[in-house]
Design a protein around this nucleic acid. Structure first.
Lengths: 468, 468
DNA sequence: GGGTATTTGTCCGTATGTATG
DNA sequence: TCATACATACGGACAAATACC
């Protein structure tokens, strides 16, 4: 930034001269870079154009600049070792690229969780709708929009969750935000009014636990059994709020049984506690019947329901929503009356039409088929290769499974050996709060971004890595 | 949501029959609504198609449904007063629409702050770039993206703030988020580690104060003078962090003098305190010289710099950024290592190219001209109509001014009388923390969304409203 | 605007358990 | 004990309607 000082006595054009010269010598302005036009700069600094001209002329005369007639002034090429090329600007980019390409080179098969198969992103339809929506309403774009999210989208969401998950609500209860974690961030300030301790599944999704922890809450770990969280342990704790993933627990894959659901709801009603229900991958169920969401089972309990569009549609969209129980609505409104939404209007409107015109339902059915096939393929490959050398968990839903490997190898060994064969598998230790309860032999495999052949190949390599 | 229970003995098709019947009778499914196809429902519930068929057939036979061959099943029209039409689903929509249209009807001229003039939104270029970037996004199979924001955009921002505001930083220090308030929300968890009290301009931007308050901070009001915040008062307080708007204080419009800036920085260094500098409308300066941002003046002080693209470009974009001082970088990384970004990749990439290809600089110059004209027009109209009946504040920058009206009327009177003439002006009382210090005769006028003629007309009406 | 892939109601047959004679 | 009829649940084939390119 160029600036001038009228208080000290030095002439303005010399101040300019020296500042520009310094920028060229230090390498901040590189050869052939275009300078601001004399008119522009004069206007920016609120000085006369001639003053700028004076400085530019002197720099030209000394070779720091050259001018193309009627085009502009440019930084000249200086001979000799004057220039202190500072390369730090580009270093970060370089580093980043290197680490990226390294990762890609190192792993031929990446069982990453949270990456989708881009072949099944409905990009053409999305693009078509997005362009149409872009033309549509200028007025909505120039203002900040509704804080909770556009009413039309919220109505679509209401219909969808009622039909699909049995969740009953009014649009007023829905809050749209840039991702589940962002919505949870908003909820934290509401929870703060009621409690300072939040119970959390252990093991549980590490990223979510981090949000609660960062917001200043005491996070109280509760064991997870094969049919969901241990309600007895929860009841014995001091927590007045709990985060659960009933439809597909992360990372154990447990589906909470209906009787557990009722127990949990009973606890919430009795203690006047808040249940945070993250239905993050309710769409992906394989060969099991749907169980209605907690929110729909008991209207009396304070359930905050979380859903998202990133997982099944496009992670880079950044759209999720939460549904607040009526009892928290007043607090929400008091706190967030003045907040702006965190999701661009265009995306909200596009998604609204995507849902309205039935593309959303169709898309869900389609990806269910796709991932079901991948899931089956993975399961069969694992059985063929490993027989009973491994135990598979969470094999009825979602985009990942965990496997416990019966051998002398521990988590880090398993990961490193797999990496040696070009296969990337992921640790579960980071999702444990009471790490001593972890068996140290379980790893996580997300299969969403690999195709069928890749899955088969990768499993063969895992067999070699771990048992040969 | 339809669901079945295999534990109780009742046949599946009768369970379905009764559930569907109930939904029709209650009015939840209205006449001619399409039911899910037999295949879909069968797949969802993990039962046979024919079982669904059986239920559908029976409902057809009894007139609850009718079928269009090879198209689908639809809810039939029932005679008589069976149906309990509950209209509550639509009530919210209706209410909302009514209040919206009311507002539009009631005000012919709206001095709303924070709404832009749609005529000067570079929508064609933005659309072109966005479509190009969309192809790219799909090709690259972008997942969640970089947590701090895409590196390319951060590099563009680095260049821009250096050139435009004298802010010096590395891309690692930049965090991109969905709006200033969202970025501030992230910063709150960092501040929490150091202090529980944050000093805040009084009067100051109410929305920002709310974020700090909601995050659990004690907000300590500090008076604002004609050249910015009262540093002495700040030094006497217990606060170890302060939020300021040096380039154009909201709502007084004060520009912080260079000597105040140095005092403030000196305080921060001495107390090891954190300055939050919101440079929210640095681009809009009329006839005054730019002063470098606090961040650029003293590299030793802990200044967190906030900038945004919503204000000058498009509010619905939801893109802002903050620049952390190196001293806070470690805390940031510890807390937010696992967070996802809150801004869609497409928007980040589009903005990056918008900046890279020079459209951003061109746009800034253009809107500066536009709003400068509006500003001059408003000032002249006010002088013509009111002469010295009013005092104007903050008339050198930004998209709003405040006026103090010398009469017996108070804030609410001024707003109501203006509304009576179809002109909407805004209160400043909500921006005061120590409300008793407010003179109760000042109102706020944002002129960005009105054109020159509308401004003149509106001011004439204000004169009538307040002095006739 | 016409060709293609997908969706959908419809009709077909089959398997199993239970009640009946 | 065996044959029969019935209720329930499941899966495949076909042609019309629809969506997509």
């Amino acid at each position: 930034m160029l600036s001038i000082d009228t208080i000290i006595g030095r002439p303005i054009y010399t101040q300019l001269y020296w500042q520009i010269r310094q920028k060229i010598m230090s390498g901040e302005w590189i050869v052939n870079a275009k300078l601001p036009s004399s008119r522009q700069l004069a206007n920016d600094l609120q000085i006369s154009r001639n003053t700028v001209e004076q400085a530019y002329q002197q720099l030209c005369a000394e070779g720091y600049l050259y001018s193309k007639s009627r085009q502009g002034y440019y930084v000249g090429k200086l001979e000799g070792p004057f220039i202190n090329q500072n390369a730090c600007n580009t270093s970060s980019t370089v580093n980043n690229n290197i680490s990226c390409s390294n990762e890609k080179d190192q792993y031929r098969y990446d069982f990453r969780y949270g990456k989708l198969d881009y072949k099944y992103v409905p990009s053409k339809i999305w693009k078509k709708l997005m362009i149409q929506c872009f033309e549509e309403e200028v007025d909505k774009n120039v203002s900040y929009g509704e804080p909770q999210g556009e009413i039309g989208l919220r109505e679509q969401i209401m219909k969808y969750v009622e039909e699909y998950r049995g969740v009953k609500c009014q649009p007023e209860q829905i809050v749209i935000g840039a991702g589940t974690l962002h919505c949870l961030g908003l909820l934290c300030n509401i929870l703060r009014q009621f409690t300072s301790t939040v119970a959390f599944e252990d093991p549980g999704y590490g990223k979510t636990r981090a949000v609660l922890h960062n917001a200043g809450f005491q996070v109280c770990p509760i064991s997870v059994e094969s049919d969901g969280i241990n309600v007895q342990e929860l009841a014995n704790s001091e927590a007045l709020a709990v985060y659960v993933t009933p439809s597909h627990q992360f990372p154990t894959g447990a589906i909470m049984s209906i009787s557990k659901r009722l127990q949990l709801l009973e606890w919430a009603v009795r203690k006047q506690a808040i249940i945070i229900e993250d239905d993050y991958s309710c769409h992906l169920r394989y060969n099991v019947r749907p169980i209605p969401a907690l929110q729909g089972i008991s209207p009396m309990a304070n359930v905050v329901y979380f859903g998202n569009f990133s997982k099944p549609l496009l992670p880079s969209l950044r759209i999720a929503f939460m549904i607040l129980p009526p009892s928290l609505l007043n607090v929400y409104k008091t706190l967030y009356r003045t907040y702006n939404t965190s999701v661009p209007y265009l995306y909200q409107r596009t998604l609204e039409r995507f849902m309205e015109e039935g593309y959303w339902n169709r898309h869900l059915r389609r990806v269910l088929q796709v991932y079901k096939k991948k899931h089956e393929c993975l399961m069969q490959s694992l059985k063929e290769q490993f027989c009973d050398l491994i135990a598979i968990h969470g094999n009825n839903a979602g985009l990942f499974i965990t496997i416990k490997v019966n051998s002398h190898l521990f988590e880090t060994d398993l990961i490193q050996r797999a990496a040696g064969y070009g296969v990337r598998v992921y640790p579960v230790s980071e999702h444990w709060q009471r790490i001593y309860k972890y068996d140290r032999k379980t790893v996580l495999l997300g299969y969403s971004s690999l195709d069928l052949e890749e899955i088969k190949q990768a499993v063969r390599l895992l067999r070699k890595a771990w048992f040969d």
